[in-house]
Nucleic acid binder design. Structure first.
Lengths: 186, 186
DNA sequence: TGGTTCTTTCAAAAACTTCTGAAATCTCCT
DNA sequence: AGGAGATTTCAGAAGTTTTTGAAAGAACCA
C-alpha cells in the first residue's frame, strides 16, 4: 500500500478519535472504529493493537463495544482460528446505527424520566409557579419527542425518503460542491 | 414555591446533568443550565452555588461557558450590584444555539481536516488501494457536508420552515400524543 | 483428554477531567 | 483615591474514566 495512504489513514484515525471524545465516545473506541472504516478490510485483534499501539484488553473491549453499536461486524476467514472485524462501509447505515443506539441508550431513558418528573407536579394546579414549571417541562418534552420521532424515521428501513430529503436540504444550503456524485449501496 | 416543584426541579437538574455527560458536556455545566432553564427566573452566582452545592469557581466557570454557548443570558437588576443569569426559555432557540455551537466547534474543524486528508492521496491515481481509500473518504465527506448543510438551515433565521417540517415529521411517527398542543414565542 | 491458540475479564495503575478555594482582579460607589 | 462587594483565575486536590496486563475462559484439534 502506498505510503501516503498509510499516513492519510493515521490522520483520519486521529481526527475521528478527536471527534469521538467531543461527543462522549472514548478516544480509543473511536480510533478503532475509524481504523476499521478507513482500511475497509477485515483486521484481527493483533492488527488493531499494533496499528494503534494499544493493549490487548483495550482492543478487545473496544471491538466488543463497536459490535454492540452495530458499526463493526465479525468476519471469519476459513482456515484461520482468529476472528476478524470489518467496519460498516455504508456511511448512511453507519450513522443510522449510531443514531439508533444513542437514542435508545440516552434519549429514550431521558424521556421516561421527564414523564415521571411531569407526574410529580401534574394537577397540583394552583399558582403561577407550578403552571409555568409545567409549561417548561412540556416544551422540553414536546421537543424531545419530536426529535425522537424524526430519528425513528431516519433510522427505520423506510428512512430512504428522509435520506433523499436531507441530501437535497443539505445541498441547497449555499455550499461548495467539489466532488462528483458517487452512488452507494450497502 | 410548592415543595413538589422544588423536588421536580432537582430531578430535572439531575437527569439533564446525566444527559450532558453522555454527550460530552461536563455534569456541572449541564446542571447549571438545567437549573436556569427549569427555574425560569434569573439567579445569581450564590443562588447557583447553594442550590447545586458547588464552589464559587465552578459556578463562575460554568456560567461563563453557558454564556459563550448562548443558552444563558446576563441580567442586571436595578439597584443590585450582583449579576444575574437567566436561561434561554425558548426550547427551539436553545437547541438551535447548541447545534450552532457544536457544529462550529467540532464538525467544521473536522471537515477542514478531512479536506486536508483528502489532498494527501488525491491524484496518486494508481491502484485499487488508493482509489477505494479515496472513495471512503469522499463518502464521509459527502455525508458530513450534508449534515452541515442541514444544520445551517436549522440554525438560520429562516429555519422556521425546517422547524415546521420536523414537527410534522416527528408527529406522524406513530407515537403517543398525551399533552395538548402548546404554542411558543421567543 | 491435553495442548494450543485466541478472546474476555477485571483489579490495579495511569491518564485525564473537573472542582475547589483563596488570591488577584475588576467595578462601582462616595 | 479608597473601599466594599462581586467576579475571575488557576495551581493543586479530588474525582472519574480509561488502559493495562496477567489470569481465566473458550474454542478447536488431534
Amino acid at each position: 500500500m502506498p505510503e501516503h495512504v498509510h499516513e492519510a489513514q493515521d490522520r483520519f484515525v486521529a481526527v475521528w478519535g478527536q471527534m469521538g471524545t467531543a461527543w462522549g465516545i472514548s478516544r480509543t473506541m473511536a480510533e478503532v472504529h475509524a481504523l476499521l472504516f478507513i482500511t475497509g478490510e477485515p483486521l484481527c485483534t493483533d492488527d488493531v493493537m499494533q496499528r494503534l499501539g494499544i493493549s490487548r484488553g483495550s482492543a478487545s473491549m473496544s471491538l466488543r463495544a463497536l459490535l454492540d453499536w452495530g458499526v463493526v461486524y465479525r468476519v471469519h476467514k476459513r482456515g484461520d482460528r482468529k476472528e476478524y472485524f470489518e467496519g460498516e462501509q455504508d456511511v448512511w447505515a453507519m450513522f443510522r446505527a449510531i443514531v439508533r443506539e444513542r437514542m435508545k441508550r440516552e434519549v429514550d431513558p431521558l424521556l421516561v424520566s421527564l414523564h415521571e418528573i411531569r407526574e410529580m407536579t401534574e394537577g397540583i394546579g394552583k399558582g403561577e409557579a407550578v403552571s409555568s414549571h409545567n409549561a417548561r417541562l412540556a416544551d422540553i418534552l414536546e421537543f424531545l419527542e419530536m426529535a425522537d420521532g424524526v430519528s425513528r424515521r431516519f433510522v427505520s428501513p423506510q428512512g430512504k425518503g428522509l435520506q433523499v430529503a436531507a441530501t437535497l436540504l443539505g445541498k441547497v444550503s449555499g455550499r461548495r460542491s467539489s466532488d462528483g456524485g458517487r452512488e452507494e449501496g450497502s
